[in-house]
Design a protein around this nucleic acid. Sequence first.
DNA 1: TGAAATGTTGGGGCG
DNA 2: ACGCCCCAACATTTC
Length: 472
Amino acid sequence: MTTALLWLRNDLRLTDNPALLSAASHDRLLPVFVLDTDESPALGPGGAARWWLHESLAALDAALRQRGSRLLCVRGGAMATLVDLAARTGATHAYWNRRFEPAGAETDRATAAALRDRGLEVTTERGGLLFEPEEIQRADGGPFKVFTPFWKTCLRTGLGAGTAAPPHRLPPPPDAPAGPAETLGLLPRIRWYQGMAETWNPGEACALASVEAFAAGPVGLYKEHRDTPALAATSRLSPHLHFGEISPRQVLAALSARAEAAGAVAGQESYVRQLGWREFGHHLLHHFPETVDQPLNPRFAAFPWRSGYDDDLARWQQGQTGIPLVDAGMRELWHTGWMHNRVRMVVASFLTKNLLIPWQEGARWFLDTLVDADLANNTLGWQWVAGSGADAAPYFRIFNPVLQGEKFDPDGAYVKRWVPELAALPPRLAHKPWAAPSAEQSRMAASGYPEPMVDLRDSRERALAAYRNITG
DNA sequence: TGAAATGTTGGGGCG
DNA sequence: ACGCCCCAACATTTC
């Protein structure tokens, strides 16, 4: 008689889950999720992600129950919890899929050692990346810092194929206390997540439905429409991927299954390249863990960020900057827990360049408000925009939110959706309400829409001057 | 996965 | 017909 612990973390799915498949060969199986109280709160799930996590765990529990199993959710130190559960259930084996965030990987090493000390056989399986961070290296063995050669190496290595079907039936759980998702206390008392609940359906079943829907149509126009935030042209898979409700291998498989029907080679390539950025983010975080809050480029340690910016930071967070595209993005984020990627770049550029507020503040806000809050992707994105990271945009690449708006939201549909104060403006003026006739301006002022908090030209010049400070 | 300034070219209006 | 100027359109450079 053997009993296995299956430690689930960012792999909340039954399909293509290597650890689950291996663990299912035992007589008894206890799937467990631990909300790790030893983890630094800054690295744990933020508010929006906690809502998602709750829903996803509940969905996973339901799916497990259909197969004769169930999920145990526990709050506590991860290592102590697993050691305790092993003792209480007489577990002989433990399984999990590897994860790659520095703190998590360290916890995993310590936990594996502790369980092995107590006589368990511990097996870790391939995690939710196409390539584990050490699998891709430069010819000299070092890590990549530039995306294109990284991605070429990935493509040359081969993206792999084949995903595992979910088991029909799972071994029954050993005697153990019940622990539904509610015991984790992830949901806030105030129902601020209403907008998220209206926008998203967490859980594996919905992840699978989303990828099928995307593969069946929108991916064909992805290359053309991916930068148009008013359209539903992107996959919206980021939170599903973050929690591992679907693996990137499954995404690739779904795309290639539909490839000929959709006739969408260019769109697919362009989309798969985005999965490549996800791989690259994890590669970088693994090799440069300090970049979570330190600039990868050491020159930026001396950057003259402003101080005493709390009020300005709050206006950015609340979508009250007076710049339509920035405010629309920040309000979309607050309401839905998500923001279109083109707009993420614009709001990030505005915070770091036009407001000279450290990118770490923006990164922290995103981690707290995004349902797809992912340490690797978020760190890469913010350092990229700030110009301090790997393969970064040169610092002087400063987005002009008016031009970006006119280019990617030409009729103003996106900004009007999230900033209703702008509804009456003609498309020509939707991204620069300050140029509207004065009667229209006073109407907007009455609706509460603010004047721009900075002059875009002056603040651009100020940013360039600050940049010259550190480049000498 | 930038924007703005500066340079170049060529068509057309006009004396 | 010709030269001149203007300026849009595009290309290049700079930040």
